[in-house]
């Protein structure tokens, strides 16, 4: 475990405020690793948030999220905005290692652009499509002062929907040929899109995919924002200006309808819940595995001496005082 003494946290934060990239990236590592001093660093960062607009990009593996993110960054830069990008990839459930490959799609155009910061995050065992500290890292980027923050989730299946807690605007990316209109009416990821983007629109079936999504949206009670369904060919930039203008339109809608504040409150709730879990469940598991209490509890369960709820309550009483 790393150790940033009180002075270290303060110094890192000062670096962030002054726009130092090495300080920002070091701070992200400390937060990810739960280093001592990270709590203080985050207190500074959360207080210094500037209100960046946060866009989430999610969708199945291979639909083109990374390439699309690269195009979105290019368009945002053209419009004069600075951008912080977080790209999440999965950690191995066996070794805890990870290959973070989202940089591969990052074009040469803004690889050295001072207005862009890119960081890869591994899930480190966290489910839901993001890493545990995504909310905190967003706060660091926001304190640094980026106008926009773009978060790319892991290749999501059907229920990795955490991104909706942290992003103001969620773009669900689809590609042709991945399922019919039955998939489109299932619960889960398709419900969370503020914008849909059918990528690889030059492939057969793109129009059909677009229609399936429109049909799903037709079945919903009309209320406020109707998610647009856009098409793109991310590899050559086609459809990107349209996609980004829909993102802007959605963000103006959030401001005009006063739902931005509501969303922010909800995302603070997600961060708070995460910390409560860490401080309670995390603490109980850590203490109980240290003195054999966890093994004893598992023995009781295995031998049918007690039910899981009962055992959990006992653990809570013993270790959570």
């Amino acid at each position: 475990m790393g150790d940033i003494a009180a002075k270290g946290a303060h110094e890192l934060f000062q670096g962030i405020v002054q726009g130092s990239r090495p300080h920002l990236s070091r701070a992200i590592s400390h937060v990810e690793n739960g280093a001592r001093g990270a709590a203080e660093l985050l207190s500074h960062a959360y207080k210094a948030r500037k209100g960046a607009l946060i866009t989430g990009i999610t969708g199945s593996p291979g639909v083109g999220k990374s390439t699309l993110v690269d195009g979105i960054v290019r368009e945002l830069r053209k419009a004069g905005h600075t951008v912080g990008v977080l790209a999440v990839d999965p950690s191995s459930p066996f070794t805890g290692g990870a290959i973070l490959g989202d940089r591969v799609r990052m074009g040469q155009g803004h690889a050295l652009d001072e207005g862009v910061f890119f960081r890869s995050l591994a899930t480190r065992g966290h489910l839901g499509g993001l890493s545990r500290h995504t909310g905190d890292v967003i706060a660091l980027l926001d304190a640094f002062g980026f106008d926009h923050i773009v978060v790319e989730t892991v290749g999501a299946g059907q229920s990795e929907v955490d991104i909706m807690r942290y992003a103001h605007t969620v773009v669900v990316v689809l590609a042709p040929g991945l399922g019919d209109d039955m998939q489109a009416i299932k619960a889960g990821i398709l419900e969370i899109g503020d914008i849909f983007c059918v990528n690889k629109a030059d492939l057969p079936g793109a129009e059909r995919t677009r229609r399936d999504i429109e049909m799903m949206l037709d079945m919903k009670e009309p209320a406020g924002w109707r998610p647009p369904v856009t098409q793109a060919i991310a590899v050559n930039g086609q459809g990107l200006p349209e996609l980004v203008s829909e993102i802007f339109r959605h963000q103006s809608y959030l401001v005009a309808s006063d739902t931005l504040k509501e969303k922010n409150r909800w995302s603070y709730k997600a961060v708070l819940e995460e910390y409560l879990r860490l401080l309670t469940v995390g603490k109980v598991l850590e203490l109980a595995s240290r003195d054999g209490g966890l093994d004893a509890a598992l023995d009781d369960l295995m031998q049918g001496k007690a039910g899981p709820m009962e055992v959990a309550l006992k653990l809570l009483q013993k270790y959570w005082a």
Binding site: S91, S92, T95, G96, G97, A98, I99, L100, G101, R103, V104, R105, M106, S120, A122
Partner: peptide, 15 residues
């Protein structure tokens, strides 16, 4: 990259 991953490290591949 794969060997580092299997050793539990986080590998960022640049392309």
């Amino acid at each position: 990259a794969r060997a580092y991953r299997d050793a539990g490290m986080e590998v960022i591949y640049t392309g």
